[in-house]
Nucleic acid binder design. Structure first.
Length: 588
RNA sequence: GCGCCCAUAGCUCAGCUGGAUAGAGCAACGGUUUUCUAAACCGUCGGUCUCAGGUUCGAAUCCUGAUGGGCGUACCA
């Protein structure tokens, strides 16, 4: 609709001899209750037009209609100039763009973007919060890829530290040699089991110590289990053979488990970073910062940066004993990633509890004069809460990722069987379909919400399969494919179409927005925009499907146009859903 | 205490850089199938956009303050 912006600028110049900018032209979709497709807001023009917005609207409308054959009609209501686009123009748009294979495919740019997501700890299995993270990261990567960027999907695995030692220690003490094979437990769940056992035993020790007269703080510090865990961490850092072996063994179990979950979710990575490799990085940057005077040393040798001028605090970047803190390694890892890939942008998909951390991290890198720091972005998302409050791994109040996925698939199976829609499916096709629908429901449920917002998940209310949901969109796609296969012919050419129905016009208008939607979603890192678009397409198509016959139309041109419109809708829905990591079936 | 984020229908969410009578889904109620898949379609019901000021021709949207909720404010990650 670019020509309209230019057209309005031209009209204003011709009529009122006033130069206005593109951003002064306010175009919006015409509301349903009025005639037209595109609305120009003319309030701002009345000032220099020297007449009311209504009269200015009428004049601009007349001018536009005279100059542009695309505009078939217009009406003015208050400060709103509603323009109707001609059927001829809509058909041209459909033929030249929407129905083409290349519709919504952007040219490749030379920009590289890294999307870091998932970033699990190897002491417990993934839960619903991780699912949100993984789906967001994967989808944003797909969207940026579709927008033409080269993408590196990265996973920074937190595979070391005191929390990992806790599960290791508990397994060593209470595990009796249990393995995934011996127990039938998935490796990550096995590790998680011992993480919980550690916490339970540790709490018992604390109680005993408190009963024996220690303060709570002292008890937490002095509990023998915690002392042992700390000792184990020191041994790990000293490369103790026995500890390292145990660490490798248990982590291997966990990775095998994660792989299964990642595969279920359909997410993948191009590059893994492991904290065990990167946790010592960042010391060079500390030196660099000291040399540049960005950091300063205190008497105890600890290194700090003063961010009070930026409204933040003083921040420790290196301990007095020379060991790293979280931000030290993140500084180093940021540098390493940059050296590895030289990307233009780097997106960190991390929960909003780390907003402050990333603010500080990016600011420090800017102060160090890293030119690439401008391309860093924290894609912050809200926590997933249960009606009972926050999920806590240690206390076992989590919605487990694997469990949830199986439940979704089981529900999909049950619903589909109830509807009796799988006649003629092989067992394999059925399983594939149930998985597609179950995951479609789950993914859409999580991705349709703006990342920033916190999300409420009630395990007692199953995720819907009707209405504004993934399966609704999947169903629409299957429905279209069914019509197309019944049509038989592959020749969908048509001529002599001059008139469109209202619903056809709406559908064409909606489809035409797809490239702009991908562009916005890429700029805002927002799968929710894609989700809303796909829903609108499906909704409009179902309306069209209901109102207009397709195969039964006698006029071959009309029939073929409607088939072509159906096919274009199916293709666009498929493309959009693909950006969300959701597959669409041929039949359901 | 200080900082950041959020607040829209009974519930879950949309609402683009300020623009028309604030939209969907679920739930409730009613209707649609001898016709291309009823996981659908159509209709009814449902909102002082948390509150109070301000800016503007115009505010759910911008500014200030208040209230409620979340998160952070560690020589944890």
């Amino acid at each position: 609709m670019d020509f309209l912006v230019k057209g309005v600028i031209e009209a204003v110049k011709a009529l009122y001899d006033k130069e206005i900018k593109e951003s002064d032209v306010n175009l919006q979709e015409t509301r349903k209750e009025f005639k037209g497709e595109v609305t120009v807001v003319t309030f701002p023009f009345s000032r220099f037009a020297g007449k009311g917005p209504e009269q200015a609207g009428a004049e601009i409308g007349e001018y536009l209609q005279r100059q542009h054959a695309e505009i078939s009609d217009f009406n003015v209501i208050k400060g709103f100039l509603n323009l109707s686009l001609s059927d001829k123009f809509l058909l041209e748009t459909f033929n030249k763009s929407i129905s083409q294979e290349s519709f919504g495919i952007f040219e490749r740019t030379n920009d590289k973007v890294m999307v870091e997501y998932s970033s699990p700890n190897t002491n417990k299995p993934l839960h619903l919060g991780h699912i949100r993270n993984n789906l967001l990261g994967f989808s944003v990567a797909e969207i940026l890829d579709a927008r033409g960027y080269d993408i590196i999907k990265a996973n920074l695995v937190n595979d070391r530290g005191i929390h990992i030692c806790k599960s290791m220690l508990a397994w060593q003490k209470f595990g009796n040699g249990e393995t995934p094979e011996s127990s039938g437990l998935k490796g990550d769940h096995l590790a998680g089991k011992y993480y919980v056992i550690f916490d339970k035993e540790y709490k018992k020790e604390i109680e005993h110590l408190i009963a024996a007269g220690q303060s709570e703080d002292d008890a937490k510090k002095n509990a023998p289990l915690m002392a042992e865990a700390r000792e184990m961490l020191q041994k790990w850092e000293a490369n103790d053979a026995e500890v390292i072996e145990l660490w490798k063994r248990m982590n291997a179990w966990v990775y095998a488990g994660f792989d299964v979950t990642y595969k279920s979710l359909g997410v993948s990575f191009d590059k893994y970073y492991y904290e065990s490799d990167t946790y010592l990085l960042g010391k060079d940057i500390i030196e660099e910062g000291l040399a540049k005077g960005v950091f300063f040393k205190k008497e105890d040798n600890s290194v700090w940066i003063d961010l009070t001028a930026d409204g933040l605090d003083e921040k420790l970047v290196l301990r007095g004993d020379g060991t790293s803190v979280y931000i030290t390694q993140d500084l180093g890892t940021a540098q390493l990633k940059q050296e590895d890939f030289g990307m233009n942008q780097s997106i960190y998909v991390v929960g909003n509890e780390q907003d402050y951390h990333f603010k500080v991290l990016f600011l420090i890198l800017k102060k160090l004069g890293k030119s690439w720091a401008e391309g860093l972005y924290h894609l912050s998302y809200g926590m997933v809460d249960l009606p009972s409050g926050k999920m806590k791994s240690r206390e076992g109040t989590v919605v487990d990722a694997d469990d949830l996925i199986s439940e979704m698939i089981a529900t999909a199976k049950q619903r589909t069987e109830e509807l009796g829609k799988v006649d003629g499916f092989t067992e394999e096709e059925k399983d594939r379909l149930y998985r597609m629908i179950g995951l479609g429901a789950l993914k859409y449920f999580l991705l349709k919400v703006e990342p920033k917002k916190r999300l409420l998940f009630d395990p007692n209310e199953s995720i819907d399969f009707q209405g504004h949901t993934g399966p609704f969109i999947q169903y629409t796609h299957a429905r279209i494919r069914s019509v197309l296969s019944k049509a038989g012919s592959t020749d969908l050419s048509f001529n002599n179409i001059t008139e469109l129905t209202q619903t056809e016009r709406e559908l064409v208008m909606n489809l035409s927005k797809y490239p702009a939607v991908v562009d916005s979603a890429a700029r805002e890192f927002s799968p929710a925009l894609i989700a809303a678009f796909a829903y609108d397409c499906a909704k409009l198509y179902n309306k069209f499907y209901h109102e207009e016959p397709i195969l039964k139309v006698e006029d071959l041109d009309v029939r073929n146009f409607r088939l072509a419109l159906s096919e274009a809708t199916a293709n666009t829905i498929k493309k959009a859903m693909h950006l969300l990591g959701i597959e669409v079936p041929e039949r359901m």
